[in-house]
Design a binder for these strands. Sequence first.
DNA 1: AGCAATTAGTACGAACATCGAACAAACCTC
DNA 2: GAGGTTTGTTCGATGTTCGTACTAATTGCT
Lengths: 348, 348
Amino acid sequence: MIAPAGHRTVRRHNLALVLGCVAEAEPLSRARVAERTGLTRGTVSSLVDELITAGLVTELAAERGGPGRPAAPLQLNRNGPAGLGLELGVDRLGACVVDLTGAVRAQRIVPSEHVDADPEGVLDALAELAAAVRAEAALPIAGAHLAVPGIVGESAIVRLPNLSRWAGVDAAGGLAARLGCATGIANEADLAALAELWFGRTPADFLYASIGIGIGAGVVIGGELFRGPGGRAGELGHMVVEPGGPPCRCGGRGCLERLVDLRDLDRSARALGAALTGAVALLDVRTIVLGGLDPAVAEPLRAAVAAELAELDPPVTVTVSDPGAGGALRGAAATVVRAVIRSPDGGR
Amino acid sequence: MIAPAGHRTVRRHNLALVLGCVAEAEPLSRARVAERTGLTRGTVSSLVDELITAGLVTELAAERGGPGRPAAPLQLNRNGPAGLGLELGVDRLGACVVDLTGAVRAQRIVPSEHVDADPEGVLDALAELAAAVRAEAALPIAGAHLAVPGIVGESAIVRLPNLSRWAGVDAAGGLAARLGCATGIANEADLAALAELWFGRTPADFLYASIGIGIGAGVVIGGELFRGPGGRAGELGHMVVEPGGPPCRCGGRGCLERLVDLRDLDRSARALGAALTGAVALLDVRTIVLGGLDPAVAEPLRAAVAAELAELDPPVTVTVSDPGAGGALRGAAATVVRAVIRSPDGGR
DNA sequence: AGCAATTAGTACGAACATCGAACAAACCTC
DNA sequence: GAGGTTTGTTCGATGTTCGTACTAATTGCT
């Protein structure tokens, strides 16, 4: 409720509407787009023209079949602006390029132990990796997004529990300078949750629990990431599971993160069950996705956690993350192209 | 991303923009509204004309002061459409009328023990109470909203833990028929949280914990109520505080609701502290408002809970609800007028 | 008194995006 | 090859905002 609306606003809105429609169910003719969106065929034609000249949409050869003039199928431009995803893990670096449809066009992941390494040197290595996938994909890059294993504030890293040397480092800014394109940054669990939403088999509302070296979570409500007022929402690892238990660096006591040890699945499942029961009560999500797990551990843990939540009403479904979804790296890259699809005019 | 935008949409948006601007900082001249909204003075004139003929805004006598033509102050119409708030408590009934500014223009609260009473009879009594406040306020009623102590689904009561005879009763529909106006329904804690937001001294992000016969919570994020996918979000009472503790009817074990007993403030504060620590981690709210408390208990409990949360980083503020905010009843009534202000054309 | 300066609100034409309807294009079937 | 059907484009009408010029009403200075 801040900005006035005018002609421009309407055009922007409808441009995004048409592009989103094509992205959702390509290929689609102009006539079908008109039906789905409620716009006139004439208006759709005008909007599609603009999207084509912007390089976001392409028109395929006419498709003959039934009676009447054959439709010209529209689809997202596979050679249009792409997203560059970057990952700074505790023990690896990753980079990938995703095209407008979300397909991975190039990807590299290299092990890289950098707990004690100089952040600037790591950023150099990451930029080099990015250059390699960019060259391989040979697509125009609309922007980049970086996944980090920690809490992210306003475009700067606030806390990386397992990478203490990064405290206060402006990783997004450093990469933007090295790469020459706008670079966002977000929590690894949040981006993995989005990948699960876009490329996995989740409903529009779920909690993604990333159970790795720490425990993080990404919460998706209504198909949107729920970040909370300060961007720190979903800190599942600091739910209190054992009141009066061992103190945690967060200031609480008996936090989940300190009680989960995957060598003891029963104990871990009980702790996760308690934390997730609370999360379900508070957020009202009915699906839990467990991610970041070793394949050998995943299914037993899933079953044990599901048993802990079995009595809840309404019932809660517990699943394991979809390996095809692509994780935080693809989520980061897809975040960029999703932003393009949401506002095709690119902010003017 | 569903509806196409056109002239109509723009007009609606700007109408709401102007009305919201006046509501936020009345009285305000057309020129100031133009400055604040970014619209042209001409456009604002046109929009204000429409709002005045719709009976939502009134023009006061010109205000002389500095040089130049005196401004005609605009304000919300005190005699415009009003909201009817209704409350179905465990041991009382309430009704109130609130004008467009949110001011209470008539209010009645009567004790009424109806755990064993017939719902239809109770609705009759509530409708009668509503008729009385309507007559007293003598304002046109835009709609009604009902506050209930339980979980609300899609416009029907889903569960009222303390009023078992109401399971499955369509209270909103029954009241709409009796009152002759559209009637919404929501959880008591949610509406009390909104009252706190609109008429109290809270920031735009907080958790309101209603500690009465049960324990509920209303979560406000970014100035908006966070309801969750199924409208059940904020069930603080079913956070797990004592894993493996006594079973709860929700299917969990060791739920907060079963462990809080205000006669033992220390124990209650520890349990609340554990649940709220989890809520803070998950939702990232930094302010907790305690409501529904006896004045004698409120401050000691606040202090005890604040002590439990003292170590958290970033810090969390614990306050007691503002008695001037008006609680769920005023929140219900204000919900109606807020809806009018948000979409002044009334949906066409 | 009278006149300039200042601010508020109104009037009018231009720009722009959608809508509706008519039209042209391309294919299928008979 | 004629008729029917569906797709996509063209063109004028409608409606809303914007920019500019104009009128209105008051203060303050000469």
